[in-house]
């Protein structure tokens, strides 16, 4: 863990102003922001722990808890909302038995909501990892999940 954080900090030349990008890279490495990594980062960048924690909790992209193997993003942007995006989100919650932001007991999926992914024309949209699923309806949820 030590080396990864050092490597990332080095990549950004210890530039404190790049904290968001640094945290993004740490999250990409560990799938979430582990506490030890943040403590390490605090020392490396000479930023108080409290300020790093503040950043990590302000931005929605960051998770302080380990996330599942697959990340499901259900879009709740306006275009998806007017076409029933909320119902898709509820359906996912029911079938995965987790609330938004939660990870399934088997660690397979983390369900996250997002406010627009830039493909509004095909709403409601769900994205699992890098794959997009457009024109979602409730009955398409189960077959979609089965692919994983």
């Amino acid at each position: 863990m030590k080396d990864k954080v050092s490597e990332i900090v080095k990549k950004y030349n210890k530039d404190k102003s790049q904290l968001v990008s640094i945290l993004q890279d740490i999250q990409a490495e560990y799938n979430y922001l582990p506490r030890e990594a943040l403590n390490k980062l605090s020392k490396k960048l000479d930023i108080p722990q409290s300020q790093i924690y503040s950043m990590a909790t302000f931005f929605r992209a960051f998770s302080l808890k380990p996330r599942g193997k697959h990340i499901i993003n259900v879009c709740l942007g306006t275009a998806c909302h007017v076409r029933g995006g909320e119902l898709i989100a509820e359906s996912l919650e029911r079938q995965l038995n987790v609330k938004r932001g939660g990870t399934t007991a088997d660690g397979k999926f983390t369900l996250e909501s997002v406010n627009c992914m830039g493909c509004c024309a095909t709403g409601p949209v769900v994205k699992i990892d890098e794959e997009y699923f457009g024109h979602m309806t409730n009955d398409k949820v189960e077959p979609m999940l089965k692919k994983y």
Partner: peptide, 21 residues
């Protein structure tokens, strides 16, 4: 960005560029 709508506001965006919330 880090996933915050408010960062579309110019001063918030600049705060974020400075490494702050």
């Amino acid at each position: 960005g880090g996933g915050a709508f408010v960062c579309g506001e110019s001063t918030a965006l600049m705060a974020s560029l400075e490494g702050k919330p």
